[in-house]
Structures are given as C-alpha cells and as structure tokens.
Design a protein around this nucleic acid. Sequence first.
DNA 1: CCCGTTATGTTATAAAGTAACAATTGTTAT
DNA 2: ATAACAATTGTTACTTTATAACATAACGGG
Lengths: 159, 159
Amino acid sequence: MSADSSLTFDPRQALEHAASLCERRGTRLTELRKRVLEIIWNSPTPLGAYAILDVLRDDGRQGAPPTVYRALDFLLEQGLIHRLASLNVFTGCRRPDSFHGGQFLICRDCGQVDELTNPTVEELLRAEAACRRFEVLSQMVEVLGRCPDCQRGAKARDR
Amino acid sequence: MSADSSLTFDPRQALEHAASLCERRGTRLTELRKRVLEIIWNSPTPLGAYAILDVLRDDGRQGAPPTVYRALDFLLEQGLIHRLASLNVFTGCRRPDSFHGGQFLICRDCGQVDELTNPTVEELLRAEAACRRFEVLSQMVEVLGRCPDCQRGAKARDR
DNA sequence: CCCGTTATGTTATAAAGTAACAATTGTTAT
DNA sequence: ATAACAATTGTTACTTTATAACATAACGGG
Ligand SMILES: [Zn+2]
Ligand SMILES: [Zn+2]
Ligand SMILES: [Zn+2]
Ligand SMILES: [Zn+2]
C-alpha cells in the first residue's frame, strides 16, 4: 500500500485540486460550478440535482433546474464528479486526474458510496468489448449492497 | 466454445423459457406480464416503460404507468429482464436461469445492447466488496460505446 | 470599447416513476 | 357452491427528474 497524493478525500483538497486541474486544462471552474462541486463534496452521501438546487437557493442564489444540470454537465465532462445512474445522484470523484469509468459500492440503506478503481475490471471489460469489435467510450460499475455499518445496525435490531 | 442451451436469443424461445421457469418457481407469469416480456423481446433495442405502455395501448388494452411498472417489477424480480439505469430502459435477460448482475455493452448511436456474462468481473467486484466488508446485493456494469455497425457507418460518413 | 463566445437566468414542458385506492380475478376453506 | 382471503390489475392523481428554448449577463481577444 503506497500513499497516493492524487487521492482526494476532503472537500477543501478536492476543490483546490479541481481548480488547478481546470486551470491546467484551460477550462473555467466558475463560482457556480465550484460551489456545486463544493456542495457535492460537503455531503456525506451523493446528492440529486434538486437537492443541490435547494442548497443553492439556501445560499440566496437564484436558480432553476438548468442552472444545476449545466454545472453538473461541466463537472462530469471534466471528470470531477460521477453520476450514479441507478440512483440519479452525483458524487465527487476521488481520482479526477485520470479519466476513468466509475466503480462504486453503494449502500442501499444509508446511501453512502465507496469509489473503487480496479484497473483489472476496467481492462477485462475493455477486452470483452474489443473481441466484439465494440468501441468503448465510458464504463460504469455500480454494486448495490450494504455497508459494514448498516450490516451491524441490522444485526443489532435482529436481537 | 460450447453450445449452451440456456442461452436465449429469440422472443419465442425466451417466452417459453420464462413460462417454464415461473412454473417451476410457483410464480405467476400472467398474460399481462408475458405480453410485456414479449414486447421487450420483440424490440431490437431496449425499451422505456412508456414505450412499452404505448404498445400495450396499441393492443387495445387499458393501461397507465403503474400497469407497466408493476409488470416490470415482477420481471426484474424473476430475473427475466434487466434495467439499464443509464438509459432508463429494459432489456430481456439471455440467461434467466442464474441470477446475476447485468453486464452490458450499450451502443450510444443505435441503442443496441449486448449482454456479457463474465464471471471474472463479477468475482473481482465481489472480492473488492468483501475486503471492505461490504455485502453485495446486486451488480450492474454498463459499458457505453459504439457497436461495429455504427463505427462503420461513421467511417463511411467521414469519407 | 467592440464583438463574438461562453455562461447564467428564466419560463415552460417533457419524461420517468410512484402513492393510494377501487375493481377484478384467483385461491382456499368451509 | 360460496364465503373469505390474497394477488393482480385498473384508475386517478401526483412527485421527481430532466430538457428545450430563448433572454440576459459576463468574459476575453482585438
Ligand atoms: Zn472517479
Ligand atoms: Zn450503509
Ligand atoms: Zn442477464
Ligand atoms: Zn450501434
């Protein structure tokens, strides 16, 4: 196990990282986009677009659905967030440097999410695609289940 | 490469297979549910719930969204179809005998879908989950890209 | 400063999914 | 048979998620 400086875990670090990434790329992480990213990182569980919109409105900012969806589109393009299609929610990417398909463990009960980055899975899928002459554009892996905490909770209740 | 009698590719076979499966399980593949499954299998590309509803109405049958969603829920429970979360569509399962997480190659351009059943991918994900003490309930792999046909089409247009 | 580009504000609407209750059909036990 | 119960389907109304279309504002190079 080696430390990996590119792994982001806390909001502040993620935002700084995102800012420098966008600068390097010549893309514009505007105030709105940065704020949406911050809202996502500040949440313990992934948020839906309308939940993000609610927070923006609490900020006092005007906004309608397109405001949020456009910011989300940008962040998705930049690989700064992932979309969990099975739940219609968005979560911050912990490895925004390298574009990659998302791999997630999603807790059915508490909604918490753990991002995997298993290169073997990605390669296996690429290989499967290649032998079918299928050109891969993006990959999405979503594993639904129960996190350790929620398993304990359920067991405790069983007694 | 060995032939596998449990692989279904055409609607008629899939329906027969589904009927016998449900009979063995003591679950009821009613006319409505069977018809929804047939509609899904008859379509060259996965269908959304409302597209299925349109076909039902063409049949002359009454129906509202819940009619379709309930039938879809049943078919999902029985493992007779999969839901592609990234597109909000449903597709017939080619291996309904063994419950499994879905693994799909989805063509961005024509919408056609190829179902993979790579046990190594499933095992790898289970292993990743296990070493995080995460209890797996279901898996979903969606690879978005371009099928061979659509690659050729795009190339032809490039000339 | 001017002008083209990009980003955001705004209104309205489409698409996907569900809650709640009524009516019907199927099943089981007298 | 028929009453009682369970499962399925019909029906109405609604919530949530996402996008289209157009107006306004901010940015950035000459
Ligand atoms: Zn990521
Ligand atoms: Zn949990
Ligand atoms: Zn399947
Ligand atoms: Zn195609």
